[in-house]
Amino acid sequence: MDTALLLEPFRVPYLTRALIELTILGVLCGTVGTFVALRRLEFVADALTHTVFPGVVIGFALRGATGILAGALIAAGVTACALTLLGRHRRTGDDTALAIVLTAMFSIGVLVVSRSHSYTADLETFLFGQVLYTSRAQITETAAVAVLCLAALAVLGREFVLRAFDPDAARAAGHRVGALDLALNLIVALTVVAAVRTVGTALILALLVIPAAIGRTLGRRPAHLALIGSVAAVLCGYLGLTISYTASVDHDLALPAAPTVVLTLVAVHLLALGACGAARLRPARFRSPR
């Protein structure tokens, strides 16, 4: 790829907007994802991505594109309540409750979409988002959500880490663990809502999980994990967008933008794992055998 191609996203206006959106989301998801990984909330995050879907669909059906954000917010709130209530039931495990809420909410979304005429096309728009149709207003909204979430993390981050590492100690130190859990769940829910229009329901989980995994491979401290994750997410957003654009325009290969970004993240993760493995193998040769 020559340099002209790498600069392409900055020349085409809609690509520039997509890039700005992906950069904001990269920083947001890379940071929030670190806490998702520390608290092992991967399944909760996955459930939230799916339960926001009916909100998006119903919001769109009632108010058009402007209704999506409100619908997503309401659905995220409903999920948080449902999960809290079900999680208290002794006989039903957390993951079982999550799976039931996830499939039920998602099915409601599918039911609503299935009433429309352009069933399949609509469904896929909602599922995979439309990176390339990012509007100015959308960037403003995403930025607002990102500032809110990152500010909350800056204030509560250390408590989240303590709670993730040792809940008993957190409780003993006077932190309200239940409130902390609710706060983190809400932050994840907001992140999902912010990302849903751009990368779609199906791929948000990738943005939350893979940058954090890259961070976990290369970094040690929570702050480093968040930094590495964010940088990786932003970088891969840029690379993925460029690859997808180049492939579609120059090579007539229809690579959808959001999945390409995710696959770029996967590739970087594999590279990081390989580099880390190689770095660990080398000193092993000089170690005396047991």
Binding site: F43, F128, A202, A206, A213, A254, L255, P256, P259, V266
Partner: peptide, 29 residues
């Protein structure tokens, strides 16, 4: 964490294959 990574990766790969491959009868939906 491992499951989450593999889940996301698998789904993205499938989505790209659906889009890039010839018009297949198996739709994503």
């Amino acid at each position: 964490g491992a499951i989450g990574v593999v889940l996301a990766a698998g789904f993205a790969l499938g989505a790209v294959l659906v889009a890039a491959g010839p018009a297949s009868d198996r739709k994503l939906s």
